[in-house]
Structures are given as structure tokens and as C-alpha cells.
Amino acid sequence: MVRNDLSGKVVLIAGGAKNLGGLLSRKFAAKGAKVAIHYNSDRTKTDAEKTLADITSAGGEALLFQADLTKVDNIKMLFAAARSKFGGIDIAVNTVGMVLKKPFLDTTEAEYDTMFDINSKVAYFFIQEAGRTLNNNGKVCTIVTSLLAAYTGLYSTYAGAKAPVEHFTRMASKEFGTRGISVTAVAPGPMDTPFFYGQESEDAVAYHKSASALGGLTDINDIAPLVEFLVTDGWWITGQTIFANGGYTTR
């Protein structure tokens, strides 16, 4: 069954203003989808408005929604806004995440809480609201991290907070399958975006570039087509976490 026609479909993207999320927003819109673009704060507002302008100037249709998704009511309002504007939602993609690179012994309770709120809690309730509100035969995809298959230190709260999303994905896919909804996760390697560089020294960047079998950091242009495939022709894949990282880690 071919499902790659996005004309008239509605795609909601959490963290859809910049980096991978911004690229997905533009690509889905270019293929005829109506896009609900979430962004977190005023710091991202300029990027969000630029993404919106790019879509509308190309003849597409989109809306912006600013919210802190660690507050569950805001997740509900995000989905409600997209449904109110477009009449329904077919695809929901969550790219939201936060990295903390810090020794285990130095991590504070506040840092732990923040990391799990952003990387785990948001993912859980985003998937939950998608399951409640998506049209039948909808698609849900969450961006996680290839560190889930790494043997390393310093990323305990980042990888640790992303790890439950694999289980959320499996459980949700089992429960939502009766409505034809597939649920997947994508685990890129370190992506060549500002999201990555803020935590890393020059030596660490060099290591990450050398660690993948195919060489270099993950290019978001190599991840976007995979996400698109999973929420269109790849709809039969469900409950899975796909590691896409040039051989940075495998499992």
C-alpha cells in the first residue's frame, strides 16, 4: 500500500522551528502537507517565523504554536490548535530534546529533573495525545539518540532520559495498532547542528566525527528522508527504534 502522498495531510512537529525539526517542517510542506510548527521559547521565535515564512512564500500552509511542553496541558493545547486550524492531524513528529554532558557524580537533582522532563515526560505525553487525537491510520515518530546503544560515560541523564522512549514506542504501537496508527523512534548519531556543539570540546567533536564507520557527524539531510519514509510508505514498521548514524553505534 503506497502512502507517500502528503497532499492535504496535516503534520504536527514538536520542535519544528529549526535544525532537524525545521528541515522536516519545510520538506513536509513542500510535499503538500499542512504543518503545525511548535517552538519552545522566545529564543526560537525568529527561527520559527523564518520557517513559517519559507513555507508560506512557497505556497504552503502552516501555523506556529509556542509552548513549554513539559507542562502536559500545553501538549494538549498544541494538538487542539492544530485540529482547530486544519480539522485533524495525520502525522505527529517529536524532535524535542536537551543534551547534558556531565559526570555522573556531579549531576544535580535539578538537572536530572529537567532532563527527564524534556526528554522523557514530553515524549510520553506527546505520544499519548497523538494516540488520543490522530486520525485513523496516523503516524507518530520520536527522535531519540544513538547513545542508547553506546558504552560511554558523561551522558547519563541524556541517554537515560531518552531510553524510556523506546519502551513508550513499543507499548503505544501495540495499543494504537487497532486504529492503524504506527509508532516509531529514530536514533541519529551526533548531528551536525548547533544542538550538538554546545556540549562538546574540540577534541570531543573530533572523536565523534571519527567514531562512525562512514565518517563524520550525522547530516540532518540524511535523517529527514528516513522520518518521512516511516510516516508514509514505511507505515508497516511500528514499535521499532531505527538507528541511523553511519555506524556510530549499532544494536
Rank of each mutant, 00 (worst) to 15 (best):
R3T: 07
N4T: 03
D5F: 07
L6I: 03
S7K: 07
S7Q: 13
L12E: 01
A14Q: 01
G15Q: 02
G16H: 07
A17C: 14
G21H: 05
R26W: 06
F28H: 07
A29L: 00
A33F: 02
I37F: 01
Y39H: 02
Y39F: 13
K45Q: 13
A53Y: 12
D54P: 04
T56K: 15
A58D: 04
Q66T: 12
Q66Y: 09
D68S: 11
L69F: 03
L69W: 03
T70W: 06
M77A: 15
L78T: 02
F79H: 07
F79E: 07
S84V: 05
K85G: 10
G87A: 03
I91D: 02
V93S: 04
D106H: 14
T108M: 05
E109T: 13
M115D: 09
M115Q: 09
N119R: 05
A123D: 07
I127F: 09
I127C: 10
T133D: 12
G138C: 05
K139P: 03
C141Q: 06
L147M: 13
L148H: 06
A149I: 00
A150T: 01
Y151V: 13
T152V: 15
T152F: 03
T157E: 11
A161Q: 10
A161D: 09
K162W: 07
P164I: 06
F168H: 08
T169M: 06
R170K: 14
S173K: 08
F176Q: 02
R179A: 11
G180T: 04
I181R: 06
V186I: 14
P188F: 00
P190N: 07
P190F: 05
D192Y: 08
F196G: 11
F196V: 11
G198R: 05
S201G: 12
V205R: 10
A206W: 08
A211I: 09
L214A: 14
I220L: 14
N221D: 08
L226P: 12
V227F: 02
E228D: 08
F229D: 09
D233G: 14
D233E: 02
W235L: 03
W236V: 15
G247A: 06
Y248C: 11
T250S: 10
